[in-house]
Write a protein that binds this DNA or RNA. Structure first.
Length: 612
RNA sequence: GGGGGAGUGGCGCAAUUGGUUAGCGCACCGGACUGUCGAUCCGGUGGUUGCGGGUUCGAGCCCCGUCUCUCCCGCCA
């Protein structure tokens, strides 16, 4: 192949594997990439050569000296091929790939890297198990689907940055090694070598820093910010670490924060998907209304079903199971579902079973069939009561109404779950659409279900609606906060708030949750202190980047949009993290382990022998 | 911390529900083949059914323990 090297060509490639077209026919070209597929006809060998950009077919004739070597070469080996770009015969054109009109007829070839037999299959539809995929993630991300997801992620982040900057925001970095925060999720701790017995913490979010940037006069902050929380994973929640589009603004109202997010998210979702995206302004749903109608503070608005409260209809009714529960504080929520009276009995029986699996004591329902109402609880109700229910749910022939009777939060939880299940099972989830909404007016406080004490329901730094005076309310649970969530298709993308920038209001707000002045000073002294030297009213929000990309990619699991994710137990199976460390490292950090680590054999040095 | 599902050659799956030699596809090795694009055809190698114990004439299947993965609840201001 020295002849070709002498032509002054780049030693690896003159084009990518997605560049050659019919117009290149007759040219000499050089490509490098992975052997994606081989088709060996004995007398002729076809290789699909793949790189980041695409696939090009390489043709190898048996007269070539490298023919035998390429025949035996394993897929995913890396080669450089030089040859002439040749137009394919009309009947051999491959319309499925952009380079399908041509092929590269190999004249010279270098094997750059021989691949061993792969531990997982890359070509085709088959997907390896999670464990294998994560252990060999560097192979897994060669697969087209994951590769495209990561490109999408890159595009989304780039686009978001441009949008934020166009709106006058600036990106600032905040510390990764910081101090442990007393509220919220468990921190990841990092021991200090210089200060024996002391620890840094990784930030759960740059919350304090972005507020301090506002105090520092920067006005419009954003950051694609890494966040670290030592909490257990979910399908839509990456364990350990994730990224937020962290935003904070000075001298703003809640509506101005909404306008920024609506603009950026609408632009991003429109640009990176073909689906319909709700145009701004998005629906604002008060928290209590969301819990009543959808049984959730992250309602999936693609499902055209809504609950209503029918407690009063049942309070004095002859249906003692409900009336009795209502007398001791329960509510009754009704979910009308149009046009399902023809569903078989088994449909309803399974649903009852499902509801009981969720912790409900049962699932009552009524069927509107022509002029009559049927169902297991029909006999307990008067015509007047049935009329009231029909009116509450706008019931028509063929409709069915389900009832959830329980303490309010349990009724909402079960009803909300069944609303979503019915939406899915009945095929009534609106397709190809991103439905956004804001959940607003979150309560400032809630009652701790275990202790019964009044506790912050969300962010303790939120401004109570009505300010200082509002905190004098007789019932703290009635106080609302300038606290909001943005929700898309049933996925919570973000929480945010207008912050409490007044030390006096902070003391009082914390006092209601049982914190003394001294508690507040010691736990949040830095922020409190900053607010004593001139703090602008400010607020912000922090949409989750991973979840946005997950929605745009149409993936069910957040790992599919992260290059090197950890598994559910927060282990990196590829890098083998977390891992034991040497005794020397521990000594430098003034750390003595309480017990011998179970996999002590993997440590390079013996673990600490003494118990503390 | 709790509950559900799963673990069978390198990979993805099956095994008539306790029955004889654990099958299939891909990959791998060998052979045939000059136009395929998931090439095709012929032949072959490869398995202590996660691990340990138990029940049974007999266990991939049932029971107990244990490990691993996954989904959910708790948790995630």
């Amino acid at each position: 192949m020295t002849d070709f090297l002498d032509l002054g060509m780049h030693i690896y490639r003159t084009h990518t594997c997605n560049e050659l077209r019919a117009t290149h026919a007759g040219d000499t070209a050089r490509l490098s990439g992975w052997v994606f597929r081989k088709r060996d006809h004995g007398g002729i060998l076809f290789i699909d050569l793949r790189d980041h950009y695409g696939v090009t077919q390489v043709v190898v004739h048996p007269s070539r000296p490298f023919f035998d070597e390429l025949t035996r070469l394993h897929v995913e080996s890396v080669i450089t091929v030089t040859g002439s770009v040749t137009r394919r015969d009309p009947e051999t054109v491959n319309p499925d790939i952009p380079t399908g009109e041509v092929e590269l007829v190999a004249e010279a070839c270098t094997v750059e890297s021989v691949a061993e037999v792969l531990p997982l299959v890359l070509a085709g539809e088959e997907e390896a198990g999670e464990e294998a995929r994560l252990k060999y993630r560097f192979l897994d991300i060669r697969r087209d689907r994951v590769h495209r997801n990561l490109l999408l992620r890159s595009g989304v982040i780039s686009h978001v940055r441009r949008q934020m900057e166009a709106q006058g925001f600036h990106e600032y970095q905040t510390p990764i090694l910081t101090s442990s925060s007393p509220e919220g999720a468990r921190d990841y701790l990092v021991p200090s070598r210089v200060h024996p017995g002391k620890f840094y913490a990784l930030p759960q979010a740059p919350q304090m820093f972005k507020q301090l940037l506002m105090v520092g006069g920067f006005d419009r902050y954003f950051q694609i910010a890494p966040c670290f929380r030592d909490e257990d994973a979910r399908a839509d929640r990456s364990p350990g670490e994730f990224y937020q589009l962290d935003i904070e603004m000075s001298f703003v109202t809640q509506d101005e924060v909404f306008a920024v997010v609506e603009s950026v998210l609408h632009s991003t979702f429109t640009r990176f998907s073909g689906k319909t995206v709700d145009s701004a302004p998005w629906r604002r749903i008060p928290y209590r209304e969301a819990m009543l109608k959808y049984g959730s503070d992250k309602p999936d608005l693609r499902i055209p079903l809504e609950m209503c409260d029918v407690t009063e209809v049942f309070r004095q009714s002859g249906f003692k199971a409900f009336a009795g529960a209502i007398a001791s504080g329960a509510v009754v929520r009704a979910l009308p579902v149009p046009g399902i009276k023809t569903q078989p009995r088994s449909f309803f029986d399974k649903l009852v079973e499902y509801a009981m699996g969720l912790g409900a004591k049962g699932l009552a329902y009524l069927v509107w069939d022509g002029d009559v109402v049927k169902g297991p609880i029909r006999k307990f109700l008067t015509d007047a009561e049935l009329g009231a229910l029909a009116q509450a749910g706008a019931m028509r022939d063929g409709d069915v109404m389900f009832f959830f009777c329980d303490e309010a939060s349990a009724a909402a939880r079960v009803g909300g779950d069944i609303r979503c299940k019915l939406g899915r099972d009945l095929g009534r989830v609106e397709k190809d659409v991103f439905r956004f909404c804001w959940i607003v007016d979150f309560p400032m406080y809630e009652r701790d279900s275990e202790t019964g004490a009044v506790a912050f329901s969300h962010n303790p730094f939120s401004m109570p609606q009505g300010g200082l005076e509002a905190l004098d309310a007789a019932d703290p649970l009635s106080i609302l906060a300038y606290q909001y969530d943005v929700v898309c298709n049933g996925v919570e993308l973000s929480s945010g708030a207008i912050r409490n920038h007044s030390p006096e209001i902070m003391y009082k707000a914390f006092a209601l949750a049982g914190y003394s002045r001294e508690d507040v000073e010691s736990r949040f002294g830095c922020l409190l202190n900053a607010f004593r030297y001139g703090a602008p009213p400010h607020g912000g929000i922090a949409p989750g980047i991973d979840r946005m990309v997950m929605l745009l990619a149409g993936e069910e699991n957040i790992r599919e949009v992260i290059a090197f994710p950890m598994n559910q137990k927060a282990q990196d199976l590829m890098m083998q993290a977390p891992a034991t460390v040497s005794e020397k490292q521990l000594r430098e950090l003034h750390i003595q382990l309480r017990g011998a680590p179970r996999e002590a054999g993997q440590a390079k040095a013996p673990p600490a022998q003494k118990e503390p």
